[in-house]
Nucleic acid binder design. Structure first.
Lengths: 147, 147
DNA sequence: TTTATTGGTTTCATTTTGAAACCATGTTTG
DNA sequence: CAAACATGGTTTCAAAATGAAACCAATAAA
């Protein structure tokens, strides 16, 4: 009767969700990728219960998405930093951001835009493409069993 | 003490998660985008409790991600089909799939690959890019308040 | 006409969540 | 140095979500 786990699922999407498919994890990763590092900073920013944050951080560390390291400011506290695996979630976050902005913000509604630091311009749209660059819709794809 | 809602969050990622940020919703959307339509088909495929599936479908319809329509086969049953909004989740799913495959499948472990239907070749990698096409890492981006 | 299937809802036990209190360090201030 | 405060949690407990199974009404098949 436990909450079903997708850890051994044969679908990569399901396995991903097993690590980050709950209500808070992606928001934590979002904040860490945006530079937040400390427990309290995350807790205040997200407005979430401390015990839940502690549990999520533990799991994210366990799954190799974050790493807990001694604080960079010399203090005896520790910090949570993204691993390479965590950084690779960036496209997922940007895709979710673009989708949410398109579908759940009214035009004119204020929001903070994520831009290319160098040029200050909005990011390109995230798209699914074929190897040759053609944009693909769901129907343009099929599953196959690799050789 | 209610489960916190991200519906009115100022962050687009959070609003997205309010619609699809639970354990099952994205898997349901994945299956519907892959062509599954009927309640029982989804339930059996996902192996999830019927009441939870019913609740999720209700919410996905409410949020405009799926639509409940009379069955196409002439029977009196109904079907769940993706809306345009639901179809637009495709990049999110593909990004999650690529990430999960990269990080939670051992090499050689069997999986089904999603390929370009026309050429039968694997999809291009999903990447975050600037307007001019440069690939961007998290540190290459900043938040700004649009004018 | 009986039987089976489909698409749910209801019920109930188990888990998870969230708020608040608590606590052990570590850090700053007087 | 001592007292006060901040930090990073853990514990406790009530409310809410989840999951398994039983149930049920409407179809569809035999």
């Amino acid at each position: 009767m436990k909450r079903t786990s997708f850890e051994g699922a044969d679908c990569p999407v399901a396995r991903s969700l097993d690590s980050i498919g709950d209500w808070w994890s992606l928001l934590i990763v979002r904040d860490v990728l945006a530079g937040k590092r400390r427990f309290g900073e995350l807790q205040k920013g997200l407005g979430m219960a401390r015990n839940i944050l502690a549990a999520r951080l533990r799991k994210l560390v366990e799954r190799g998405i974050l790493e807990q390291v001694p604080a960079s400011d010399g203090s005896a506290f520790s910090e949570y930093v993204p691993t390479e695996r965590g950084r690779k979630l960036f496209p997922v976050l940007v895709a979710l951001r673009q989708w949410g902005l398109d579908h759940y913000f009214r035009r004119g509604e204020p929001y903070r835009e994520l831009v290319d630091r160098k040029k200050g311009k909005p990011l390109a749209r995230i798209e699914v493409r074929a190897a040759d660059g053609r944009a693909l819709q769901p129907e343009d794809t099929v599953f196959v069993t690799p050789a």
